[in-house]
Design a protein around this nucleic acid. Structure first.
Length: 807
DNA sequence: AGCACGCCGACT
DNA sequence: GTCGGCGTGCTC
């Protein structure tokens, strides 16, 4: 029967969110299946683009006249790259996150499977002007991008109409499997004996080769390995192939990012009673194929990782697969090693540090069922595991689980969707669960598993608050109180290590004129420039603008323009002055930009090559250094000042997490927190290590102010090249929403964003708070498709469901 | 992106 | 009355 393909196409600009129907060439009838990538012609120019087949229909289902349909050009895959689950998940993602279907399909695949497009110009007739001939030189086809001259481009357009040149579109699949040579023995050992008598006496290499072949028992061996083992060269094997002794074949090679790392195997540790309960509850659900969600709330050091590992082991024992999600930042070699050393080669690791090729290889190892366990960051939630036994999400409160570009999904929601598809449990682990997660556990939507005690029975380290309003008066340096300095000196004397954290979010050093109050700002964004001592320049963190450090104030010419505020570089200088001999390692976005720099710094610190590790938020996560006995937080509360409804929650989580870094082994730890808001409840309850009290207090606040989890929220952001058009658009949406929404819904705004201008774009936002709105979804879906027409006028619209921050 | 359609101003 | 300017809309 003749079939037609329903294809979601990857149109670079306009997205329709609706499939297009294509004829399937006779040669491919029956070959094309849903989930395959295909190349299709699109638009008047006959340009080729990539698309995904999402369904097949018969002639009776055509709603479009047959002769109007185009024919797809070719499939890009032999077998579907997206299975039925992925296709359904993509539909759900598009619906719930207000995203284009194509972006949902693409997000599930490694980057290299997104085709690259390029155009070439082909010369069809030699009768063209000299300058065009010069352009082509001797070739008759050149890349389109080589033509930059506008005059030549106009000429080419004319020539094209005269059929003297044509534009050829290319779709290139960037997914390249790496192939290597392997050899297969073609002769038996008996034959080798007789062959050896037949070869010339001086053919030493051939004799060696025959001896080697006699010694191998495997049917297939990599030639590179054979060369090492036999001491022969590639040429010798080629001779062998010519003589028919062996066959050379090409086999797929996976680029193993952990090839040189050795892993010691570890055995499961014995569990505490609360760990045992957790493991048993989850494995029971796994056995009965129940799609239940568990909140595993365990304090730092309560042994959550061991629980994860034993649950994964149980999944494997039940011949199922397991998916473990961790925040990107804690996907350190330490973490990977812990999983790898338990499950070895069955583990595939997916994170941003891998090259595109490596990611593709790991993805294929999963797809081809060579790996049963996947450990990875956010996007790994789409790993093509079949027969899932469990999904684990460590540090489930982390904001990096939410993608901040389309599709704006939260990995937690995807994990729960997949668990329902597979009938398997989800484990959400955290010491400081997101408020909505903890609230769902309260309402029995999730099962609540608690691990309140540390494994080694140690108490949480004492946390001391230093009121900087007072302490600043006699502080030895602007960012370091006397109390903290004394504590640091004590540790250094005992050869113990110190971790200092600078909470830098939304706060850094900028240039301020003490004479006239002038602040040096970015010319493109409404934000002050940040001082970078390493490059001796002023940089904008939003658009990358860079300029020289001013010597005099541009406004009043005073020389009293100085930096103000706190940065890790500045603190490092202060430390150097106060502690002449201390070795300080700095870790922030600037020192970790290079690939592998992050790991290197941690390794150096672990090897005691430094006494103090000074860094931003990134040092708070999942690090485990036994000799760290003091953790100092230099400024606990800058995040509280930000106008964001989750400020208290993130501050509490950060402080609790960083406190857990002190005294993990047998040595007693201490935490010192410098703050200007010592009486704030987030800081008070963090000091007391009391999540429950914080949770109750914060829930009250959210209830009072009508924030999540009491309300659903959707944030609409409009940005434009000029302030007026963006403002007009958001007000237009606001007026429309007034007619769409019921009386129970609330709207915040429209307001200009915190930083109204970024990279010369103006941002406005509008937040909708609601409990149930039957018309809202449909309105927003239409708005999304309609909004594309405004993009030509430079107006961009973003719809974000459950945004992680808004004013 | 690229091409057609369509509605206003300067021209044969 | 016609040519062509490019604003607008659509692509199976």
């Amino acid at each position: 029967m003749c079939q037609y393909a329903q294809v979601i196409v990857d149109v670079p600009t306009r997205q329709t969110n609706q499939p297009y129907t294509y004829k399937i060439p006779a040669a491919y009838q029956g070959e094309i299946k849903p989930g395959m990538r295909v190349i299709v012609p699109f638009g008047k120019g006959g340009r080729k683009i990539q698309g995904f087949v999402v369904g097949l229909i018969g002639p009776e289902e055509l709603i479009y006249e047959e002769h109007l349909l185009k024919t797809l050009i070719q499939p890009l895959d032999f077998t579907p790259v997206l299975n039925q689950e992925a296709l359904q998940l993509a539909d759900w993602l598009a619906e719930t996150t207000f995203a284009f279907k194509i972006s949902c399909l693409q997000v599930m695949l490694p980057n290299v499977m997104r085709a690259s497009y390029h155009k070439t110009i082909r010369l069809l007739d030699q009768d063209v002007p000299v300058e065009i001939k010069a352009l082509f030189q001797k070739q008759n086809e050149i890349p389109y991008d080589d033509v930059t001259d506008a005059k030549l481009l106009r000429q080419l357009v004319k020539l094209r109409q005269a059929n003297k040149v044509e534009i050829v579109y290319h779709v290139k699949d960037r997914a390249q499997k790496k192939m290597v040579t392997a050899i297969q023995k073609q002769v038996t050992n008996e034959e080798i004996v007789s062959l050896k008598t037949q070869i010339p006496k001086n053919a030493v290499k051939q004799a060696q080769l025959l001896d080697f072949l006699a010694s191998v028992s495997q049917t297939t061996i990599l030639q590179s390995e054979a060369q090492v083992q036999s001491g022969l060269t590639a040429a010798d094997f080629k001779t062998g192939a010519k003589k028919g002794w062996l066959k050379q074949i090409k086999v797929e090679k996976y680029r193993d990012p952990y090839a040189d790392t050795e892993f010691k195997t570890t055995i499961p540790k014995s569990l505490t009673p609360s760990q045992t309960t957790a493991v048993q509850s989850v494995t029971q659900a796994m056995l009965q194929q129940q799609a239940e969600t568990y909140l595993l709330q365990g304090v730092t050091g309560s042994g959550k990782t061991e629980v994860y590992l034993q649950i994964i082991a149980e999944a494997l024992a039940q011949k199922k697969t397991a998916l473990m999600l961790v925040p990107e930042i804690s996907l350190t070699p330490q973490m990977v090693q812990r999983v790898r050393s338990r499950f070895g080669q069955q583990v595939a690791v997916l994170h941003s540090g891998l090259s595109d090729g490596e990611k593709y290889d790991e993805w294929r190892r999963v797809e081809e069922k060579q790996a049963q366990v996947v450990v990875g960051a956010r996007s790994a939630v789409f790993a093509p595991l079949e027969n899932l036994g469990v999904i684990i999400m460590d540090e489930e409160h982390e904001s990096s689980y939410k993608q901040d570009e389309m599709p704006r999904y939260h990995a937690r929601d995807v994990a729960i969707w997949r668990s329902q598809y597979h009938g398997c449990p989800v484990v959400l682990g955290s010491a400081t669960p997101a408020l909505e997660t903890r609230a769902r556990a309260q309402k029995d939507v999730y099962h609540w598993l608690q691990m309140p005690d540390r494994i080694n029975g140690q108490a949480m380290p004492p946390v001391k608050l230093v009121d900087m309003r007072e302490a600043l008066k006699e502080a030895p340096a602007p960012d370091i109180s006397q109390e903290l300095l004394t504590a640091i000196k004590q540790r250094l004397a005992k050869k113990e290590q110190v971790v200092l954290m600078l909470n830098r979010r939304g706060y850094s050093s900028f240039m301020l004129c003490r004479e006239c109050g002038f602040v040096l700002k970015c010319p493109n964004c409404d934000i002050s420039l940040t001082l970078h001592m390493d490059t001796h320049s002023m940089k904008c963190h939003y658009c990358g603008h860079e300029e020289a450090i001013p010597q005099t104030c541009p406004q009043c010419q005073s020389r009293k323009i100085k930096y103000y505020g706190t940065g890790t570089q500045k603190v490092q200088e202060e430390l150097a002055k106060l502690l002449l001999t201390a070795r300080v390692l700095r870790m922030d976005v600037d020192t970790t930009r290079r690939k592998g720099a992050h790991e290197k710094i941690l390794q150096q610190f672990g090897n005691h090559e430094a006494d103090i590790l000074l860094g931003t938020q990134m040092i708070a996560k999942g690090l485990d250094f036994p000799d760290v006995t003091l953790v100092g937080v230099l400024n606990a509360d800058t995040a509280l000042g930000l106008a964001n409804y989750r400020a208290s929650e993130t501050t509490f989580q950060l402080l609790t997490q960083v406190s857990g870094r002190a005294g993990r082994a047998d040595k007693k730890g201490e935490v010192i927190v410098q703050t200007y808001n010592p009486e704030h409840y987030a800081i008070q309850w963090a000091q007391a290590h009391d999540y429950e009290s914080f949770y109750r207090k914060e829930m009250q606040v959210r209830h009072l102010l009508g924030y999540p989890p009491y309300y659903f929220t959707i944030k609409i952001t409009v940005s434009g090249n000029d302030q007026l058009s963006a403002s007009k658009k958001i007000h237009e949406i606001y007026r429309e929403l007034q007619t769409v929404l019921s009386k129970d819904a609330l709207m915040l705004g429209p307001t200009p964003q915190q930083i109204m201008r970024i990279n010369n774009r103006y941002y406005f936002q509008l937040v909708i708070k609601y409990k149930f709105e039957k018309n809202l979804e449909q309105y927003l879906k239409n708005l999304l498709v309609k909004s594309q027409t405004d993009e030509k006028a430079g107006i961009k619209l973003v719809i974000d469901r459950n945004p992680l921050n808004f004013i």
